[in-house]
Amino acid sequence: MKIVYDGSMDPRLCKAVLGEQIPALAAEDPDLIYLDADLMNCIGTAKWAAANPDRAINCGIAEANMIGVACGLASAGFKPIVHTFGPFASRRCFDQVFLSGGYAKNDITVIGTDPGVTATLNGGTHMPFEDVALYRAVPGATVIDVTDPTMLISVLRQCKDRPGVKYIRVGRKQYARVYADGSELPIGRAVTLREGTDLVIFACGIMIHEALQAADVLERQGVSAAVVDLFTIKPLDADAVAAWAEKTGAVVVAENHNRFGGLCCAVSEVLAERRPTPAAFVAVEDEFGEVGPQGYLQERFGLTAAHIVEAARDVLKRKVQ
């Protein structure tokens, strides 16, 4: 694993990565089966699916049934990868994920695309700020907010063979390039992207790019901020959280999600129990989504590097000296 972040965007769109990786994994593993709810064209799998009807099942616009079918296939030894937009991959079929999947021990991987503000022009109805909270509540689930295309490739492969319910939230468009091609990112392990001594910024998903930019700004202001990628929101790397809290004594958490139920909560739980530390949160303040370009939405919901800098200044004031 190598970090190559320089602020530039990865040329690969995540939808193109999914469109390549799902067929590639299916070619390697005869048990892999892909299910979608009439959104194959949104991630570039439609052509391959049409040519491989035994490997790709279009379940129509019926997400609850799709999850159930995937779980039935899992009970027969298949490894289902299910895709739809984030809200429909979480809220719409939550009881099915919870019972037919988690409770019945039918292992499935669910990809929810366009999490949070990355739903942009599809607007509030399509903008999940709660999907992480829901999936975190499924016992034994794995919950991942993807940082960049390289990570997407790595975690998709790991999830395929991992027990339990796995939820991967990822935008379909461009991400800042953080990891060198071919890097493996072991699920459940935090990655230190930037060392620092005054505070630590824990982030995931699109907020990694913002956090790294914020750390640059803070450095210019004489503040040394560490940035840690907590892409696996569950199971959280609690040791890394506690160690960084101890080392820096001040924490900022940044996520493209409601502050209730997601990474902010996951980190707070660890801090409260293992290392009480002043913390500040950069997340959606208990609101529904709305329509607009991503830049507008990040400003609107307070999810920018500037908001992280502000939170950092605030938490430093509260830091116990």
Binding site: N65, G68, V69, C71, G72, A76, G77, S100
Partner: peptide, 23 residues
Amino acid sequence: DMTTGSLGQGSSLACGMALGDRL
């Protein structure tokens, strides 16, 4: 053969099982 209890869910599970057998 399958966990059930939340009504309706067995129907989709059965479809997946039948599809799996066929595949």
